[in-house]
Design a protein around this nucleic acid. Structure first.
Lengths: 228, 228
DNA sequence: CGCCCCAGAATATGATCAAATTCGGGAGTG
DNA sequence: CACTCCCGAATTTGATCATATTCTGGGGCG
């Protein structure tokens, strides 16, 4: 039963249709970022072949890509799993994420437009709703969208891509945190970020973003502590 | 004509033998880092199948991985090429490389050992020889080794991996520079770096590394200017 | 407790189908 | 009459699948 669609549009128009390996890649990305896949969980090719209803070549390609993304790890014995983060890994992630994402925030602040601001406010409102309802997947997806939208507008594609890769690594552990503690004390410096964006205050925006990242990572660190 | 070996050891021992797709990946990495592949050049699957004497699945996997690495780009029209850097791209590369690689240098300085120092000196000596002889590929390979060795000893695998990815992007353009201007005024803050490492002076080591990066990137920027 | 065998999964190839680029011919125009 | 532009066939390349082969890991047996 194909989870993957054949580019069937709502209007019956036949679009270029992205190749299956691309669709599988995106599908797996989503599963890694927003749940379904837990740290340490094995990922088998045949399992995905059956689950997605596609051949093994596209699955294979998608898995290899995710491997280079650091979202999956190749054990060497032909086995692939979702990586488990160590404290050391986490510390490095914080360092890189903070430098890159605060810089992206600074650049985005300079070129912010009312339209983008409105869109971000919209996303943040929905996000609050998801938190209130305890909708974990919704929270994760909207939080990702919020950050991604900002980074897109920094017009620095290489930096944005690096940031994206790091999110793939922090996704599964963050999901664990949510599963354990619910959507309660999750990072929400979003209001501060939005304020700073509106005032076009680069420094304040970057500071708020840095705090948002710190808070999220601290949650993960706390969860890691419990597992040791 | 298999460029890829079947894990034939010198002692006839049968090793685990890394899978072909891994070998192809490493082979292509080398070609991107040290020459052979120029920016804008198309990379065809079938071409590599014939050139390397392997099936198309491993080639496909290797190309996908490099795509996620940013070392190759997928044109959407099913075509893959070596990316060409814009000025904007270069500026972002400099920013990320400097923050990550100077930090790696700081950390490596703290845990430097006489053995590593000796090895680095050895590499740098060979490197000078390559420069003197105008051996471009040798220079590129040794320069890469020099930096990589340092970053390895920082014991920060995630940061090191990010740095590696960025080298893949700056590889082909740097190769162009060498082809044009020879191995003359190439960056060589290596002596300063070695001095600082020996004195365990974090700040000085990081500063020297930053200058080394700046110099290399400036060369690329100059070459980019000529093309416009 | 260690060794061997078997099931299952991954690796790699070749075949097949589909898409895109390229190249050549014909019509139209200056 | 030569040149250019456009359209379509042929060829090249990519995408996907099905299949053969190899290897890993586990369970049973000596």
């Amino acid at each position: 039963m194909g989870v993957v669609k054949k580019a069937a549009d709502t209007d019956g128009e036949t679009r270029p249709a992205s190749p299956i390996h691309e669709q599988v890649y995106q599908e797996l990305r989503g599963r890694i970022l927003f749940g379904e896949l837990a740290p340490g969980q094995p990922v088998t090719i045949q399992g995905l072949v059956e689950a997605l209803g596609v051949g093994m070549t596209p699955v294979r390609e998608a898995i290899r890509r995710l491997t280079s993304d650091g979202a999956l790890v190749f054990l060497g014995n032909r086995r692939v799993i979702v990586p488990t983060l160590t404290m050391d890994d986490l510390e490095q992630l914080v360092f890189i994420r903070k430098t890159i994402e605060t810089e992206l925030t600074r650049r985005a602040t300079r070129r912010i437009t009312p339209e983008v601001l409105a869109e971000l406010n919209q996303i943040d409102t929905e996000l609050d709703g998801a938190i209130a309802k305890g909708n974990v997947v919704g929270y994760l997806a909207l939080n990702y969208r919020f950050h991604t939208r900002i980074y897109e507008h920094a017009k620095a594609p290489i930096m944005a891509e690096q940031a994206d890769r790091l999110w793939l690594r922090s996704g599964p552990p963050l999901r664990v945190v949510c599963g354990r503690f619910g959507t309660q004390n999750l990072p929400d410096r979003h209001k501060d970020i939005l304020d700073a964006l509106e005032r076009q205050d680069e420094a304040a925006a970057a500071r708020a973003m840095g705090q948002d990242i710190d808070q999220g990572m601290e949650q993960i660190a706390a969860a890691l502590d419990l597992d040791t």
